[in-house]
Nucleic acid binder design. Structure first.
Lengths: 186, 186
DNA sequence: TACGCTAGAGAACGATCGTTCTCGATGTCA
DNA sequence: TGACATCGAGAACGATCGTTCTCTAGCGTA
């Protein structure tokens, strides 16, 4: 066999590819970014890209899935450094506030993907719904620990803050939502 | 002059065109819908379309603007049939719940447009921001009438409910947000 | 009636899309 | 060393995009 590609090389290429795809898709939207641009950003031959993901749609789904793992992992890491259940719930909004203030923040990648592709790609729709369900359940578990029944309001406040900060470019909704959550937790 | 087009014909064509564009864009996203499809849905020659709007982007902006007038008008009509300030704020969520339950509901057209075009079209971005500001200010005025300072939380709850109902397809967030608003108004 | 203009229908244009194919280079095994 | 499998680079493909152009039909005016 001449020059086969190692499993490790594949994993590494996959990561590089997903990095490029994620930042381009997030920045400009999915349909606005062509495969050629992803290719040049990733520095990978098109052939290799299509050997890793058969279609652009698969690449989008894989990118959303990896982003979900990282995004929710980072959130959990931040939140669970606190011991007090109430502090944990409020920490969610602090974490969101930091995220909103990051340069290039442009709202929620899943909400954006849903608006653009939700009606034409069942696979993307599934991925978006499963991310939102997971985020919801994460919040629900933390809220329940406080003994408060305000699970849904806290989730809706978080979603509202993400969307509003994404559109206005102002991270203030994180603090506003945090204050409201504080009041709702009682 | 041979067969010139009356101002009234233009207005009527404009409406038919915006109707077709609005439903197609809302249903499938902007980039997913081509001008030819809009043409056949509107039953208008391409030439007329481009005499009404010079570019697709202008058509999108005009469609968002007209939708904003209608959407906020319908909300205000519903809400302002109530006299009690508190009832008015809660009525916002009832109105949202009815909207969520409509067939074909697919979230907020402005949030969707923002995710898809916000980073590539300044005109669309402006339109989205101005709609959100107007909706925010509408809610703010109603909340202030109750004497409660909970302006931002009520707005964030509404936004969170719209986004969540749009993704899950379940209108329940309207009631959940309504209950939370009720608690926050005190 | 003949002319001038505009509207309609849709072909055409150049660009770009996602995806596949070609082809020469490269390195491995018999 | 020679045969061959696989790779990278990017041309090529067919489809589709937004937009413009062509051409004919038909009306209003002289």
């Amino acid at each position: 066999m001449p020059t086969p590609i190692s499993a490790e090389q594949r994993r590494q290429d996959r990561d590089v590819l997903l990095d490029a795809a994620e930042s381009l898709f997030y920045e400009r939207g999915v349909r606005a970014v062509g495969m050629d641009e992803i290719r040049s950003a990733a520095g990978l031959p098109l052939k290799r890209i299509y050997s890793l993901f058969a279609t652009k749609e698969e690449l989008v789904v894989a990118m959303l899935r990896r982003r979900d793992r990282r995004w929710r992992g980072s959130l959990a890491d931040y939140v669970e450094r606190f011991d007090d259940p109430r502090a944990r719930v409020l920490a969610v909004f602090d974490w969101l506030g930091r995220w909103f203030a990051e340069p290039g923040f442009r709202g929620c990648a899943w909400i954006n993907a849903h608006g653009e592709l939700g009606s034409s790609s069942p696979a993307v729709l599934d991925e978006v719904r499963s991310h939102k369900r997971a985020f919801h359940d994460q919040i629900a578990a933390w809220v329940r620990e406080t003994g408060s029944p305000a699970v849904e309001p806290v989730f809706l406040l978080a979603e509202g803050a993400v969307v509003t900060a994404g559109i206005t470019g102002d991270p203030a909704p994180a603090e506003e939502a945090r204050a409201a959550a504080e009041a709702l937790l009682g």
